[in-house]
């Protein structure tokens, strides 16, 4: 009897030991530019949703933060991480888009202006609660206390001077319908948000279409960048992420276009072979299943015609 109690107590102790530490380590990737790189895994209890890249730029007067992460805890950890590398105050938080892994740390930045594209704010107001709820389901207690905080300022595409640092803002649409990309002209670092995934399968809920996304990529690639920070995956200083994205989007498009032309069912398409060249791309099967759900109905309808009489 006693050993069962001991085991039970041990079990409780193990659960209580998890201290929900994201272990955020800011890494300097250019002068004044810092990155917090997440894993390329899916949301899970063991990563607390830290699957995302966030970053910050230290200017002469203070810190510009880009994306707040998946939870209140992450946002707070991000604040502490920033304080380990600079004494300067946080000036503002910019959000690249409204997805939960990029915006649910907003509570930790409630004392500064939070800015996003107007359409991003609208999407977050519409979908935020449901997305947060789903995050609780996926990563559990890491989310404790997390609530949706809407942006307080609106960003417009164009050139912006933040404390003497010139930033170029692009308002694009390919990933969610409202995607902000930020080029720091001083360092040449491009924060591409989730318009770029690298070594991690791209996600498609809310995309206006893969063709739109491909056009956005052209525009991004043409910028005078020196380094690319994708929304998910490792930083790159070559065009490799663009090449992979284009290849992957093209493959996804052809799978669904050819599937629809042959009358394939969704349940069949989610099992198609994934080309070996995408073997290094994390979560490709999982995201194929999601993308077929998001996008295949459009491809199907394009094949069909009115047959009622």
């Amino acid at each position: 009897m006693r050993w069962i109690l001991v085991l039970a107590l041990l079990g409780c102790a193990l659960v209580a030991r998890a201290d929900f530490d994201y272990g955020l380590q800011p890494r300097q990737i250019a002068d004044g530019v810092w990155l917090l790189e997440g894993s390329t895994d899916n949301f899970a209890q063991n990563n607390g949703g830290n699957i995302v890249n966030s970053g910050f730029i230290v200017t002469a007067q203070g810190v510009l933060v880009i994306d707040s992460g998946p939870s209140k805890r992450y946002g707070e950890a991000l604040r502490r991480a920033i304080a380990t590398v600079t004494d300067k105050p946080v000036l503002t938080l910019w959000l690249t888009h409204h997805h939960p892994d990029h915006v649910l740390g907003n509570q930790a930045f409630a004392d500064v202006p939070i800015a996003a594209l107007a359409a991003t704010t609208a999407l977050l107001a519409e979908q935020g609660e449901a997305m947060a709820e789903n995050m609780y389901r996926l990563v559990g207690d890491w989310m404790r206390g997390t609530e949706v905080v809407l942006p307080t300022q609106t960003l417009s595409p164009g050139l912006l001077d933040v404390a003497g640092r010139r930033l170029r803002l692009l308002g694009l649409r390919g990933h969610t319908g409202a995607d902000l990309a930020i080029l720091d002209e001083t360092s040449g670092v491009l924060f591409a948000g989730d318009l770029l995934f690298y070594q991690r399968a791209l996600t498609t809920p809310g995309t206006p279409g893969l063709d739109v996304w491909l056009r956005d990529l052209e525009q991004l690639q043409a910028l005078p960048w020196k380094q690319i920070v994708p929304g998910h995956g490792p930083v790159a200083s070559s065009a490799a992420p663009f090449t992979q994205m284009r290849d992957y989007l093209g493959w996804l498009d052809s799978v669904m276009r050819e599937g629809a032309a042959q009358g394939a069912e969704m349940s069949e398409l989610i099992g198609v072979a994934i080309p070996p060249r995408f073997a290094a791309v994390s979560l490709s099967r999982y995201e194929l299943i999601r993308s077929v759900s998001h996008l295949y109905p459009r491809y199907e309808q394009a094949q069909m015609e009115r047959v009622d009489r």
Binding site: Q262, G263, E300, M304, R306, D308
Partner: peptide
């Protein structure tokens, strides 16, 4: 209401009828 989109797909030894 009741509009039907559809297509008939020829398979090896049958036809697949897909409608919405």
């Amino acid at each position: 209401l009741g509009q039907v989109l559809g297509k008939r797909f020829a398979l090896a030894d049958s036809s697949r009828l897909r409608v919405q």
